[in-house]
Design a protein around this nucleic acid. Structure first.
Length: 557
RNA sequence: UGCCCGAUAGUAUAAAGGUAGUACAUCUGAUUUUGGUUCAGAUUGUCUAGGUUCGAAUCCUGGUCGGGCAACCA
């Protein structure tokens, strides 16, 4: 697609090409390792595209591995949504795996470490442990239980597994160095006691491995060649390598990149969960959410998200990508594929005074002007009374206003040229009716009038109009980086991020609209059917507006 | 006052010692029965101070700034 950049590799591709050149691996194996404690978001999409994209490009495969080592936060609901989202994005994993599948193996690894004198059972409390840990500038101190015998450690560890002790009473720790410059190497906890129900292993286990004793080992078990994660795990790499070395298992290698952030939103699972549980949005798939399911419901396509991820690339520096880039890619995709339809969101009545009352006429409108042949066409009913957009009429229009106003002419899309002769206002001063005359010779496709007008507006025939609920979305937050502000991120929520139009008028053919397809409401934006639609009332979500040069013109003054 | 990672247009990302490029955004203009699309063009950048070199975004040294590290979370 981007021919100029075909030769430009990101730093991980460079590493892989080097590895391949040296014959280090025959096949590249990566994994996407979500913890099933939340829904996937746009940041995950970047990681998914990276991991799956790499093995597509370099001939290998990618496993889906659920990192389910903390039973208290993980649920099957999340597992299902994660699988749906990855499939929807268009990727196929080789195997569906769970860290919990390896619990027995991991237990064996722990025993091996104990036997080598590299792990011990500690009895001190969390508070004491924090106390002895030291600080980044001061070394820690050894726990009094650090030098237990191998036999005692084996015995204690097996009794931990057997459920003899209550939560938090004991831990298994690696025996490394309490004065290590890297805090993570100061005898990190390997196992903790948690009498909790696990979403897959049920009540079989009451001890669970920590991330550091699970992730690298799982990578190794699966012969992952390139284990890609985000920057906050850089300091973990030393421990990752240490454990693999001491356990003498397959040496997977960890590489870190900077998580992608998008402006005017948050992508921390904790914060997204708060938005859901505290009712700021309707759910994980609320169209304002940066989740994959939210974007899908909003009307984004898999290709638009993939292209976005490809474009922003990956690197190691902090970043905040502009939302307008995402908008560009969805517009690019939908412009080529979305069928055009007409809908009036904020209606005012237009009466064609010289068009016979009671007469109907069917006009033809192509489905998609971007494609040769228009992908066919649909019939559009036309009559004496039409709904047009309120903003398309001005009583005192400025110079470059190419729409309706006293004496001004416009083309009605797919129909005739009309000239505004008069208008009616109510006591409050609101325009209630626009009176026009039409030029019969100016019919679309058969125009012999010789008249040229600057503007074209959309419309819906009053007697033929159907109604629909239309939901317009704006950014969820009022500031660029809500997660990085002084006050709590929820104080920056945009309370006008959802505008509901209960009774928009849509052209008759839209009654046949299909779920999952994008439609362009001419001059208004791209829309898709929401799952809240019923047989009695269609509900449309606005995915994105069209670019609007006139709105900019007005802004400039 | 420790260790680690990073710093290229407004944003994101390239340039492997040799012309600082691409996309989005912004601005002009052309085309247009969507003020959309398309097309043409323009503006804007190497954190800083030294050093090495014929030549530095790139290598070296010091500084500045940003981020991370002291959960029985991942």
């Amino acid at each position: 697609m981007i021919t100029n950049e075909e030769r430009s590799l990101n730093f991980i591709e460079e590493i892989i090409e080097e590895d391949l050149k040296e014959g280090k691996y025959e096949k590249i194996v990566t994994r996407f390792p979500p913890e099933p404690n939340g829904y996937l978001h746009i940041g995950h999409a970047s990681s998914i595209c990276l991991n799956f994209g790499l093995t597509q490009k370099y001939n290998g495969y990618t496993n889906l591995r659920f990192d389910d080592t903390n039973p208290t936060t993980e649920e099957t609901e999340y597992v299902e949504s994660i699988k749906d989202d990855i499939r929807w994005l268009g990727f196929t994993w080789k195997e569906e795996l769970y860290t919990s599948d390896y619990f027995e193996t991991l237990y064996g690894y722990a025993v091996k470490l104990i036997e080598k004198g590299l792990a011990y059972v500690d009895d001190i409390s969390a508070e004491e442990m924090a106390e002895l840990k030291g600080t980044p500038t001061e070394p820690g101190k050894d726990s009094p239980f650090r030098n237990r015998s191998v036999e005692e450690n084996i015995d204690l560890f097996s009794r931990m597994r057997d459920g003899e002790f209550e939560d938090g009473r004991r831990t298994l720790r690696a025996k490394i160095d309490m004065a290590h410059i890297n805090m993570l190497m100061r005898d990190p906890i390997l196992y903790r006691i948690k009498h909790a129900h696990h979403h897959r292993t049920g009540n079989k286990w009451c001890i669970y491995p920590m991330y550091d004793f699970a992730h690298g080992q799982s990578d190794s078990i699966e012969n992952i060649t390139h284990s890609i994660c985000t920057l906050e795990f850089v300091p973990h790499r030393e421990l990752y390598d240490w454990l693999i070395e001491k356990l003498e298992i397959y040496p997977s290698k960890q590489y870190e990149f900077a998580r992608r952030n998008v402006d005017f939103t948050v992508t921390s699972k904790r914060k997204l969960l708060q938005l859901v549980t505290e009712g700021f949005v309707e759910g994980w798939d609320d169209p304002r959410m940066p989740t994959i399911s939210g974007l899908r419901r909003r009307g984004f396509t898999p290709a638009s998200i993939r292209n976005f991820c490809d474009r922003i690339g990956i690197a190691k520096r902090d970043n905040l990508v502009e939302y307008s880039l995402l908008e560009f890619f969805i517009r690019e995709d939908l412009n080529k594929s979305a069928w055009r339809r007409m809908a009036v969101l904020d209606p005012v009545k237009l009466v064609i005074t010289n068009y016979p009352g009671g007469q109907d006429e069917m006009l033809e409108g192509e489905n998609n002007p971007e494609v040769e042949g228009g992908e066919g066409s649909r019939q559009i009913p036309f009559s004496r009374e039409l709904w047009v957009e309120r903003e398309d009429f001005m009583e005192n229009p400025p110079k470059k206003f190419f729409r309706l106003g006293p004496g001004l002419s416009v083309r009605l899309k797919h129909a005739y040229i009309v000239k505004c002769e008069d208008f009616v206002k109510d006591e409050a001063g609101n325009v209630t009716e626009i009176h026009c005359t039409y030029i019969p010779e100016s019919k679309s496709g058969h125009d012999t009038s010789g008249i040229h007008v600057k503007g074209t507006i959309h419309w819906v025939s009053v007697p033929h109009a159907k109604t629909a609920e239309v939901r317009l979305y704006d950014r969820l937050f009022k500031v660029e980086d809500p997660g990085n502000e002084e006050r709590d991120f929820k104080e920056y929520i945009n309370t006008e991020s959802l505008q509901v139009i209960p009774n928009a008028f849509i052209e008759a053919d839209l009654a046949n609209a299909e779920h999952g397809k994008g439609y362009q409401f001419i001059r208004k934006g791209y829309f898709t059917i929401d799952k809240d639609s019923t047989s009695g009332m269609l509900v449309f979500n606005r995915t994105v507006t069209l670019k609007d040069a006139w709105a900019k013109e007005i802004k400039k003054g």
